[in-house]
Simulated assay, not measured.
Amino acid sequence: MAGVVEVLHARFPSHAYPMHAHDAWTLLLVDDGAVRYDLDRHERGAFGDVVTLLPPKVPHNGTGANGHGFRKRVLYLSPEQLPERLIGASVDAPALIDPGLHRMISSVHRLLRSPGDSPMATELLAVSLERLRVRLAAHPVPPPDASAARTLRDLLEAHLVPGISLADASSRLHFAPAHLVRSFRREYGMTPHQYVISRRVDLARRLIVSGHPLPSVALRSGFYDQPHLIRHFKRILGTTPRTFQSPASVRP
């Protein structure tokens, strides 16, 4: 995914990291146990619902607190994902208590396991990064923009099957990615990717009714593969494509 250098899921029963540094931002969740680490000659901790952000090229170490192990998930983000001027703020306060942010980052990890859901992961990461910038820089978030949402919807419709990335949409419409996602959700009650998925299911439904063979429907309607189509088709319409194809099925 653009902007993500590496994803790490790990359990360490006893390993202790020595002092080291990364060239990326380290966005850390600790799912079990707790981590004690030193950053800029200060002792810090990561545990529970705390979101930890460690800046690039600032040395730190890490070990399980109280001699116990830990389980963690990490997104290593390319340096340009956050402004360099925020390095000092993240050194001073690397631990963020923000349940909403924690849930979004956790969802990014879950969605990255499924290639077809990477656009949703991209949207959540964009909003998460905006939230990090606001927390670290104490800047207000610009209000949602209905015109940006409507323009984005038109762009999504024009690229329904091939799709368009959030980065490309942002470049074309001259709005920040997170601003587009927030504006769209405020205007339509769903994220851009959720809208695209719902419209692709609608297209798949029409293709099935028109007699297209099921193996070709997924690609013709823009889904990653057949399981991706089946999962979302059933979630939205309450039945599988094959059942829907049956003449005996009841179609709303």
Rank of each mutant, 00 (worst) to 15 (best):
S198Y: 12
R135H: 15
R133H: 13
A89I: 04
R41L: 14
R153W: 06
T52S: 05
R220D: 09
S246G: 06
R242M: 11
M190F: 01
P213C: 03
T191M: 05
F233D: 01
L136M: 09
T243P: 06
P192R: 00
R242E: 14
V108I: 08
S183K: 10
A149L: 04
H102A: 11
A138N: 15
G163Q: 00
E43Y: 01
S249H: 15
A121F: 06
A138W: 15
S14T: 12
R242H: 11
I208P: 00
G222V: 03
L75N: 03
D92K: 09
L180R: 06
R135L: 13
K234V: 12
F184W: 07
P18A: 14
L155V: 10
S183E: 00
G67W: 11
L28Y: 01
Q226P: 10
D23F: 05
H228A: 10
S147R: 15
L237I: 07
H139N: 14
A218D: 00
T239N: 10
A178D: 11
D31V: 08
P177L: 03
I197R: 00
P215V: 08
Y37F: 15
R44G: 07
L124Y: 14
S106L: 14
A178Q: 09
N66I: 02
I197P: 04
L27Q: 00
L124Q: 14
A65F: 00
L112A: 03
G222E: 03
R206V: 03
D40S: 12
